Amino acid sequence: MTDMELKAYLERARTIAVLGAHKDPLRPAHYVPKYLFEQGYRLLPVNPRFRGEELFGAKVVGSLGEILEPVDILDVFRPPEALMGHLEEVLALRPGMVWLQSGIRHPAFEAALRQAGLLVVADRCLMVEHRRLFSL
């Protein structure tokens, strides 16, 4: 995906589910989604530890299976070894794009998503890329 294609996708995207969203403001799983929320995206935080609490203007759900609406981007903050455990839920959710944050790569997971027709970005920070592409 070229920078132009990625920027166009980010301009069209409205809803971002955040797998592994966190309450601790010092963790990337908090400050990256917070930045995206401040840029006008609607966030759907997912973390069973915080189910029912509110983050980024929405109630936290415990699993991707609890999301009952279209998702433009699934932003993933989970360790690589946990990804295959989420594969079925991700495929059922069918987000427009799956974004694996910096340091997160899993070739088999990525291949399964691509084989299912999903766009995948791996080992890149969505906040950093958004700032770079929109010169913020």
Results as ranks from 00 to 15, higher is better:
Ala29Cys: 08
Leu91Asp: 02
Gly62His: 06
Ala29Ile: 07
Val98Asn: 09
Leu87Pro: 08
Val90Trp: 01
Val32Ala: 03
His22Cys: 04
Gly57Val: 13
Leu74Asp: 14
Gly96Lys: 04
Asp24Ile: 13
Leu64Trp: 02
Lys34Asn: 10
Phe56Ser: 11
Val32Leu: 02
Ser63Leu: 00
Pro33Asp: 12
Ala21Glu: 09
Pro25Arg: 05
Leu43Gln: 09
Arg51Glu: 14
Met84Thr: 14
Gly40Gln: 11
Phe77Thr: 05
Met97Arg: 11
Leu91Gly: 04
Leu55Asn: 02
Asp75Asn: 14
Val60Tyr: 04
Leu43Phe: 05
Pro70Gly: 02
Leu43Trp: 06
Val76Ala: 11
Asp24Cys: 12
Val90Leu: 02
Trp99His: 09
Leu64Phe: 02
Leu91Ala: 04
Leu87Lys: 11
Pro70Glu: 08
Leu55Gln: 00
Asp24Lys: 12
Pro70Thr: 03
Leu68Ala: 10
Arg42Asp: 06
Asp75Leu: 01
His86Ala: 13
Phe37Lys: 15
Lys34Ala: 14
Val76Pro: 15
Pro25Gln: 05
Pro79Gln: 11
Phe37Glu: 15
Ala82Val: 01
Leu64Thr: 07
Met97Lys: 13
Arg78Gln: 10
Arg27Ile: 12
His30Arg: 13
Pro48Leu: 05
Lys23Gln: 14
Tyr41Asp: 00
Lys34Pro: 01
Leu68Ile: 02
Glu81Ile: 04
Glu38Cys: 08
Met97Glu: 10
Gly57Thr: 11
Asp72His: 09
Pro45Lys: 07
Glu81Asn: 11
Gly85Val: 01
Arg27Gln: 13
Val46Gln: 13
Val61Cys: 09
Ile73Asp: 09
Arg42Tyr: 02
Leu64Ala: 10
Gly40Trp: 07
Gly57Ile: 10
Arg49Ala: 12
Ile67His: 09
His30Ile: 10
Asp75Ile: 00
Ala58Gln: 14
Leu36Ser: 05
Gly96Arg: 06
Val76Lys: 12
Gly20Ile: 03
Gly65Glu: 05
Ala29Val: 12
Ala92Gln: 07
Pro80Asn: 06
Gly57His: 08
Tyr31His: 09
Met97Pro: 14
Leu68Ser: 15
Leu91Gln: 03
Gly62Tyr: 06
Arg42Gln: 13
Leu87Tyr: 03
Arg49Phe: 01
Glu88Pro: 07
Glu53Leu: 07
Ala82Asp: 15
Glu81Gln: 14
Pro80Tyr: 00
Asp24Leu: 08
Leu44His: 09
Phe77Ala: 05
Pro79Trp: 00
Gly62Val: 01
Tyr41Leu: 06
Ala92Ile: 00
Pro48Asp: 12
Ile73Lys: 10
Arg78Ser: 05
Asp72Glu: 07
Glu38Arg: 14
Ala29His: 06
Asp75Met: 03
